[in-house]
Simulated assay, not measured.
Amino acid sequence: MERRLLEVARRAAHEAGRLLLEAHGRVAHVETKSSYADLVTEVDRAAERVIAGAIAREAGPGHEVLGEEAFAAGAAPVTSLDDLAAVPHLWVVDPLDGTTNFVHGVPFFAVSIAYLCRGETRFGVIHDPVRDTWYEAVRGAGFMENGQPRRVSAEETLRRSLLATGFQYDAAGEGRLNLRHFAAVARQSRNVRALGSAALALALVAAGRLSGFLGLRLRPWGGAA
């Protein structure tokens, strides 16, 4: 069954990615959510509807979707996937990871879809539509980049490590805390990149291109896949 569900995730990510590419550079209206820097567009919402619709049509009954935009619109609050460990079939979706990049025309964003069975992640799919790059991990089968096996970096020292980070939207809270961590790590590592998409940054860590990711209090959809 999971092989079939993986195909569902691939098709949904491809369809959502195509929508993102068509709209990239043509965003007319931008809204804010939790702060002035926490952005959302109709493209985010449309991509989430595409993914949720594909899951509803193809996955079968009993499958629930936890999506970033539905959550932002007032769905029941979830701070950890542990809160949903009893759900038999859960899809965790970020339809547009890297919305700020997308809004400003920076071509670095992704579609992220993870499937969990009773709290255990079974697979994750991250699609970079700009480069048509696919990152996939299946429990027990390792990590793949465009169908090729990849491994994490073997680097063990910060001095030779290239890292990535992300900054929380709430500049008065987690953002300041993350800045302190960023400053400490930046002084000891080769460099730290703020890429604007946690999903893609984590995929690059899994592929061995980056040695690590520094992030605080990621939302469930930020790192599920």
Rank of each mutant, 00 (worst) to 15 (best):
V125T: 06
N178F: 10
Y115G: 02
P220D: 03
E145Y: 11
G124V: 04
R187G: 12
E42W: 15
R160T: 02
E174H: 13
T41F: 14
L216I: 12
P149Y: 07
Q188H: 11
F71Q: 11
H89E: 10
R26W: 00
E68L: 07
Y169Q: 15
A184C: 09
Q168N: 12
E22D: 13
F213C: 10
R4M: 12
A194R: 13
A47W: 01
Y115T: 03
S197D: 03
A23L: 11
G222A: 15
G53A: 06
V205M: 01
S189L: 14
L21P: 05
T165W: 09
A13Y: 00
V205Q: 06
G17C: 08
G173Q: 09
R209C: 03
F143P: 11
R150E: 03
A9P: 00
V192W: 08
Y169W: 12
V87H: 01
V92E: 06
A54P: 12
G67F: 00
D94H: 15
S80C: 05
G53D: 02
L214Y: 04
G67H: 00
G175P: 00
D38E: 06
P77T: 04
E120L: 15
T41W: 13
P129A: 10
L19G: 12
T165F: 03
L19H: 04
A199D: 01
F109M: 07
G147R: 04
I126C: 05
V65R: 01
W134C: 10
V152C: 13
D94Q: 13
A86V: 01
Y115R: 02
V50C: 10
G196R: 12
D128C: 06
H24K: 04
P77K: 13
A137C: 10
L39I: 05
A186T: 04
D97A: 12
A16L: 01
L204F: 12
E7N: 03
F71R: 08
S153A: 02
G25N: 09
V103S: 05
L81S: 03
D83F: 09
G222C: 14
S80A: 11
R159L: 02
G98S: 08
G17S: 04
C117W: 15
L179A: 07
A194P: 09
G215S: 15
D94N: 15
R219P: 15
P220C: 08
M144G: 11
G212R: 12
V65W: 00
V192D: 10
R219M: 06
S189Y: 11
A75F: 07
A201P: 03
T99L: 09
A225T: 07
P77L: 15
H104Q: 03
L96K: 00
F213R: 11
G173I: 07
R176P: 10
E156S: 07
A59F: 05
L6Y: 07
A16C: 05
T32H: 07
Y135F: 00
S112D: 00
T165P: 11
A172G: 10
Y36G: 15
A23Y: 13
L218Y: 07
C117H: 13
L84V: 06
A13S: 09
A186K: 03
